[in-house]
Design a protein around this nucleic acid. Structure first.
Lengths: 148, 148
DNA sequence: CAGCATCCAAACAGATACTG
DNA sequence: CAGTATCTGTTTGGATGCTG
């Protein structure tokens, strides 16, 4: 038993990776993993989940105010999708003027954990990425200049 | 000291969430976190990283064969972006016919860990999401039928 | 207030043809 | 082999106007 914790973590990751690859079959459209990763595709999904996770419950316009730059249309579309996927719960109150409240479901909260970890990674590595971009762009510019 | 491990994990998440929110300022376009999360936007980035992580080093067409459905153009664009961000290393051999090999950088491998965790979450919860969608769509259909 | 419907511009992505 | 260039259909998303 000379396996370290790091070894076991590696094994764990390796196993998960194989599982993902197995599930990423030739039928890309029906791939369940792709399907969920696509939730990260649109900018607003992640931000909506983050803000709902932070605030607990929010009305439509409260959420809209928090997510800078989102149009009404896109927030509506985003919330519908999240609701359909069972990540967000929508509660309508029969009042005038109408009141609609949104909050995360248990499933949504478990996804929030993943998003936070991802955001944390991004936060911790953004500097490295920005520097890499600058290096790359400088190199490009030099090549272009050499061609002139 | 009656705080449980779960409590501390909650604190940790809470702290990370606050940090993310702080960094998600009004200037959305320049937000470093958004910038990195956008790497998840396009379908091919994640798949490229997963396959490179699995195989180690791959030539352009080897990678293309593994990623079902990707066009040459999109794979090229994707790899350029990943290279620019310092996630993928591109090595060109001065041979004829040309040989180009791609592999993850250290930064890319650290992102791979995050992608695997995310994919693992997706894999474990895809069933719940599919069921939620079916429930939602059925409900929709009923509403429509009631209106007829 | 919360939203749906429509229009339109811009970004995206596939197919095709060509090149060092 | 590993691209680049171009053309084009599709998708996206903002702006605007209207409704219960």
């Amino acid at each position: 038993m000379d396996r370290t914790i790091v070894d076991n973590q590696q094994d764990d990751l390796q196993k998960k990776l194989q599982n993902i690859l197995k599930r990423t079959g030739p039928l890309l459209s029906s791939c369940p993993i792709r399907n969920i990763l696509d939730r990260f595709s649109d900018k607003w999904s992640t931000l909506s989940i983050i803000h709902l996770g932070d605030a607990g419950t929010l009305r439509f316009n409260e959420l809209k105010k928090r997510i800078d730059g989102v149009s009404q249309r896109m927030l509506t579309v985003t919330l519908r999708t999240l609701e359909r996927d069972g990540l967000v719960k929508r509660r309508v109150y029969a009042e005038i003027p109408p009141r609609v409240e949104y909050e995360l479901t248990d499933l949504g909260r478990s996804l929030l954990v993943q998003i936070i970890e991802l955001g944390d990674w991004a936060s911790n590595h953004s500097q490295q990425i920005i520097q890499a971009r600058e290096r790359y762009d400088t190199r490009e510019r030099n090549v272009v200049m050499a061609e002139l």
